[in-house]
């Protein structure tokens, strides 16, 4: 057994919670995922101090990436101050002692659920997605062996059936989140349940995107500057949703908005889902 080099004497946990051998195994899976963009690499998912479905996959990926100099940002539905985001950020601060931030520009690693920050990411950032279901075919193909063959032979016709059915029944493609993409012209992949509004941000993104699915034990990646194409038909091209309103707090017209009910009379307002973006635009200091 190798000595656990990062084990701190006055601390009960290894650096970033996972033991060094586990982190090495996860890093291998990550390297493979980066080498084959969009391909789901199996990995030995560990039990985490969080229920599966709350981001155990993202947690393990982040744990294996963190170094002493990193600065971590965690968001949930775009916000830094929701329960899940706060507890994951505190968790890593506790078990690794790395610096945390709410500012997108300052973070080196951003762990996220359901959103990609509005501020464009840079080449020295990594975005880690918590992914409940990494298999985009799962809704149609229940057998794993069959799904893998479809990936191997790149016969993705079945995925278009969903698009066809949506258009014939509703007149448009109705998927608004977890909208499947083809990565690097080869593998069909799920971008995790981000709104399709965020799909274009994945295309030729400067930052490395890693997707961890803890319960399903899969990791896949979109390396920097990789082609990411959302599925569509020639005569029904992919489009993102538009908002009539602008953010009532910062006035942004280009961001993804959350709808807030203001009273029982049905008054409502829209605000940026990305809280850090909104705060920066309002000129507030967001350091916790």
């Amino acid at each position: 057994m190798e000595t656990d080099l990062a084990f701190d004497d006055d601390d009960v946990y290894s650096f970033a919670y996972l033991d060094e051998m586990t982190k090495r195994m996860i890093r291998r899976a990550i390297l493979k995922a980066v080498a084959v963009p969009g391909y789901q690499v199996p990995f030995g998912s560990r039990e985490m101090p969080l229920p599966p479905g709350w981001g155990t996959g993202g947690l393990q990926v982040t744990a294996s990436l963190l170094g002493r100099d990193d600065r971590l940002k965690v968001i949930d539905q775009g916000a830094d101050d929701t329960t899940n985001a706060v507890s994951i950020r505190r968790f890593f601060a506790e078990v690794s002692g790395v610096a945390t931030t709410e500012r997108t520009g300052e973070a080196t690693i951003i762990q996220t659920r359901h959103r990609i920050p509005e501020r464009a990411l840079t080449e020295d950032q990594i975005i880690v997605f918590q992914q409940p279901q990494p298999e985009p075919l799962r809704r149609f193909i229940t057998e794993e062996a069959v799904a893998r063959k479809i990936h191997a032979f790149a016969r993705y016709g079945v995925m278009y059936v969903r698009l066809y059915e949506d258009i014939s029944r509703l007149g448009h493609i109705a998927m608004s989140s977890d909208y499947p993409v083809v990565v690097n012209g080869r593998y069909l992949a799920s971008p995790s349940p981000i709104p399709k509004f965020d799909n274009p941000k994945l295309h030729r993104s400067r930052a490395l995107a890693l997707f961890g699915a803890g319960r399903e034990r899969r990791i896949h990646a979109i390396p920097p500057f990789t082609e990411v194409k959302s599925l569509d038909f020639a005569d029904y091209p992919f489009t993102v949703q538009r908002f009539e309103a602008c953010c009532s707090a910062c006035g942004a017209q280009d961001s993804y908005l959350d709808e807030i009910l203001l009273d029982d009379g049905g008054r409502r307002a829209f605000v940026c889902s990305d809280t850090a973006y909104c705060a920066e635009r309002r000129g507030e200091r967001t350091e916790s």
């Binding site: 016969r155 993705y156 016709g157 079945v158 278009y160 059936v161 066809y164 059915e165 014939s168």
Partner: peptide, 9 residues
Amino acid sequence: GNIAEPLMA
């Protein structure tokens, strides 16, 4: 959709 599926494949 049934007729279109093999065409899309």
